[in-house]
Design a protein around this nucleic acid. Structure first.
Lengths: 204, 204
DNA sequence: CGGTGTGAATGCTTTCACAGCC
DNA sequence: GGCTGTGAAAGCATTCACACCG
């Protein structure tokens, strides 16, 4: 099996989750059944996923945790190294955005929050934070200067598309969208939707 | 086409999003191309979805917004009426949970936050909120009494599964999971995962 | 024309089945 | 026996193609 073949999106999402599980795993070895027990995914699906990654070090008695971690990190270029830090920003400093203004949620991850933005100057001035906060008008230079690549969008729905446009114009490559708006983005920009309202509708 | 046939999950998710778009839609009529333009979904996919719902009122010159809204609400039992309020709670009152302690995010939706829980008594006592806050030990009676059916889980990862177990034991039927843990829940309980960390990994 | 309704065709994803290994 | 590696088969989801309608 060639690693060059494109990995399906569904597999990619699972592997990234699996990485979290592996990092927290207590023992040296792990089987597809262990993984199945902690995720609910079918064991055969996990083996198939790993096969797609070109993994073949399981040899009949489980996987070595570290081998798996390495393989997944290599495949998706997400090794957690000092040189591999990913800079993010918070766009929208309302209640939700302000709550994200420290790195406790992202601790132990390669992501670091480097800045916050709001179109309301007031918010920018009132809030205290360990990162610089900027009015949205200064976004472009601030994003360039801090080498920010990803954004967490926490504005109100009515401002979502406009703020999104500004972010992509400033060169942002990925957006975690916490509004319930479906964003239109240029080719190549990735979006993950994390609207609480949408999620609630889905768990009914 | 029979409405009794089970609607695929993917279609259901789109239709629930579509509902938001329709409610905010300015004009009386909307075409599959309009919807395509505001979502990025292929127009044919939208027509196919509506066909699966058994909708057939489009007759060649677009859909009437209100017809569509009605059909979607009926199909998924999510009409927004006074009698159809859905009570929720916040489990975990750290920075993130505390930020959700007002209903501004859920305004105009059938969801209402009715309570907050934390296993740390301190948090419960310190925080001000318009809803009652309870220590986790009092969860079961509080959930019964307030007729709460859904929970937003905002505890730290290490406490996620335990808090989840408590919630399901208390009768919660759906969980919006903002931790990066993959939860194990009893049959019949729905979970939507909204971990920011996971989402960031996916937009790389 | 510019639209919908419809089923067939295509493309993903997941599950199954089973040989092979420790 | 318990587990992996592998491809085929089954199950979903999306796109296409085109008749038909106003």
């Amino acid at each position: 099996m060639e690693t060059l073949t494109k990995i399906p999106e569904a597999t990619r999402k699972r592997m990234i989750q699996l990485l979290q599980i592996l990092r927290a795993w207590h023992s040296e070895k792990i089987t597809s059944l262990d993984i199945s027990a902690s995720t609910g995914w079918k064991a055969s699906l996990i083996r198939h996923d790993l096969w797609l990654l070109g993994f073949n070090k399981g040899v009949s008695n489980g996987y070595k945790k570290d081998d798996l971690i390495e393989k997944i990190e290599d495949t998706f270029f997400i090794a957690q190294t000092k040189q591999n830090v990913k800079n993010c920003c918070i766009a929208g400093l309302g209640r939700l955005g302000a709550a994200l203004l420290d790195n406790s949620l992202l601790e132990g991850s390669p992501f670091v929050i480097k800045a916050g933005f709001d179109s309301n100057l007031n918010r920018v001035e009132i809030l205290r934070s360990i990162f610089p906060l900027y009015p949205a008008s200064e976004m472009k230079p601030a994003i360039k200067q801090n080498e920010i690549e990803y954004a967490i969008l926490t504005v109100q729905d009515k401002d979502a598309q406009q703020m999104c446009d500004r972010l992509t114009a400033a060169g942002i490559k990925g957006i975690v969208n916490m509004t319930s708006v479906i964003l239109k983005v240029p080719e190549g920009v990735k979006v993950e939707n994390l609207s609480i309202l949408n999620a609630l509708n889905l768990v009914i």
